[in-house]
Amino acid sequence: MLCDVNAFLGSWPFSIVPEYSAPQLADYLAQSGIRRAVVSHLGAVFQPDPMLANRKLLAAVRRTPALAPLPIVNPLLANWREQLTELGANAAVRAVRILPNYHNYALKSRRLDPFMDALAEAKLKLVLTARLEDERHRYFALRVKGVPCKAIAAFLARFPDHHILCTGVPLFDIQNLAEKHANFSSDLSYAENITMMEMLRDKIAPSRLMFGTFAPLVSARAQAAKLTQSPLTAQERKLIYAENARRFFSL
């Protein structure tokens, strides 16, 4: 069984992929052997107040047990404490996602210090998304760059007590970050190579890798094949397929 830590509801304005309802997304993922998924709402990427989309997300996944909510928070909005309080009050929420470059702040911002403290107090985990798409061939007017590896490294070093799951990180960046930062975990949605697992094995323990897809914008079946058709050890399969996600998100 696979657990996807990087799936989405809502629509991406520049994609030809239609919007899925929560049950439709769960069915789509299940067809590729993905029985559980941690899901954010794409509306929270672009709307000025992410809570509108977060509330839609929480309502949408309530009756779809295969999907767990991962709300998106903007720590630079004046009401970020209210956001966290509201989300933290929902028992289904175990973590929040931040999108620094879509929400126009740098990871080095000092305003993240109280935010990280508040996350710890609320016992919420953090998912840091480096990118949501391939910058090379996306819609021309969207000029958001991926979060640089150096910025992620500095952030990890600044908050060593927070174990952070990063998504949308390229293979070589995963290798670099894993070696120096014990509090770094990564999904594999953006990593690919014919010998991907061989290249990762020397650099990062399987306990720090999780399966992710970008579904439904990216083919879940193709992303699943990255693992299901790789020569993984039994331990790697157990951990990366779902166990690490279960533990991180307390699923």
Binding site: E192, K226, Q229
Partner: peptide
């Protein structure tokens, strides 16, 4: 486009279409 991309992924993209 292997080896930078994985044939497993590329094939299943077609199979799943």
């Amino acid at each position: 486009d292997l080896p930078g991309r994985a044939a497993t992924v590329a094939i299943q993209r077609v199979v799943g279409a």
